[in-house]
Write a protein that binds this DNA or RNA. Sequence first.
DNA 1: GGCAATTGTTTCAGGCCTCAAGGAAAGTCT
DNA 2: AGACTTTCCTTGAGGCCTGAAACAATTGCC
Lengths: 161, 161
Amino acid sequence: MDLELVASDAQEGKKQELKLWLRLLATTKLMSQEIRRRLRREFGATLPQFDLLAQLYREKDGLRLGELSSRTMVTNGNVTGLVERLEADGTILRERLEDDKRVTVARLTEKGRSYFEGMAEAHERWIKEMMAEVDPTVISGLLTHVGHVKESAQRHLSDED
Amino acid sequence: MDLELVASDAQEGKKQELKLWLRLLATTKLMSQEIRRRLRREFGATLPQFDLLAQLYREKDGLRLGELSSRTMVTNGNVTGLVERLEADGTILRERLEDDKRVTVARLTEKGRSYFEGMAEAHERWIKEMMAEVDPTVISGLLTHVGHVKESAQRHLSDED
DNA sequence: GGCAATTGTTTCAGGCCTCAAGGAAAGTCT
DNA sequence: AGACTTTCCTTGAGGCCTGAAACAATTGCC
C-alpha cells in the first residue's frame, strides 16, 4: 500500500492501546460477573473468597495474612475481613505464631478443603465453557502476549515494589 | 517430535484456558489498581466514576440511568449512588423527563466536561505508558483475539440477554 | 374506565475495596 | 536498658458492587 495508507494506519494505531485496555477490562468484567453469579448460586461463595481459598489450598501449612494479601493482590485491611468471614463458617482457621506473635497464619480446615475442591472443579469447567469457541492456538498465543502486557505494566508502576 | 510429546502437549493444553483466565484477571487487576491510584491522587476520582463520565461525554443530551447501567456494566442500584455523588460535586446533573416521569436522565455539566477532558488525556497517556514495551503488532493481535474471547464468553452466559 | 403486568429507579443488607491511622510485637542502636 | 524504627495486622471512613425487594409511572387488556 502507499504512504497515505501507512500514515493513516499510524494515526489509527495511536489509540490501539486504549482500545485494547477497554476491551480487556470489558472482557474480564463480563467473565467475572458470570463466574461470581455462578459461585454465588451454586456454592454461596464470592470470587475473592475463592481466590483466597485457592492460595491456601496449595499450601498445606497455611500462609501468613501478609503473604495472602500479596498473592491475591488484595489489601491487608481487606484480607482481615475476608479471613474473618471464612473462619466464621468453618472453611479456614487462623492462629498466631508462637515464635513471632505479630503474625497470624490462615489454614484450610478439612471441610474447607473438600468445599474448595468442588468449587475448583466447577470453576475450571465454566472457564473452558466460556472459551469454548476460541481456537486453542489463539489461546496459547494470548497466554504469552497477555504475559507481555503484564510485564510491561509491572515495570511502569508509580512506586516500585 | 514424536507422539509422546504431542500427547503430553495435549494434556498440558487442557488447562490453558484456566491459565489464560488467571493471567487476564491478574493483568487487569494490576493495571486497574494503578489507574485507580493515579486517578485518585491526581483527580480525586474513582475508576467507576471515570467510566461513567466517559459514557456521558459522548452523549451531549445525556443518558437515562438504565442506559448508563448497561453501558458501564454496573448494576442499577449502583448507578444511583454513583450519580448521586457526581451530582453532589457538580460534575453532572440529573433530571426527570416530562413525557415519562419514571425516567431520569444524567448529563455532564460544563464543569464536568472540562474536568473529564483532563482526566481522559492523562488516562490515555498512562495506558500507553504501561503498554510501552509491547510491540504494536502484538497489541493489534491482542485486540482481535481478546475480542474472540469476549464474544465466546458472551454466548455462554447462564441467562441470555 | 379499572386492574394487571411491565418498566425505570431507589433502597437495603451484606460483602468487597482502598487508603490512612492505630496498636502491638520484634529488631536495632546507643 | 530505653527509645527509635520496622513489621504485621486490625480498625475505620468512604466508596463500589450485587441481588432482592419496594415504589412509582406507564402500558395493555378486558
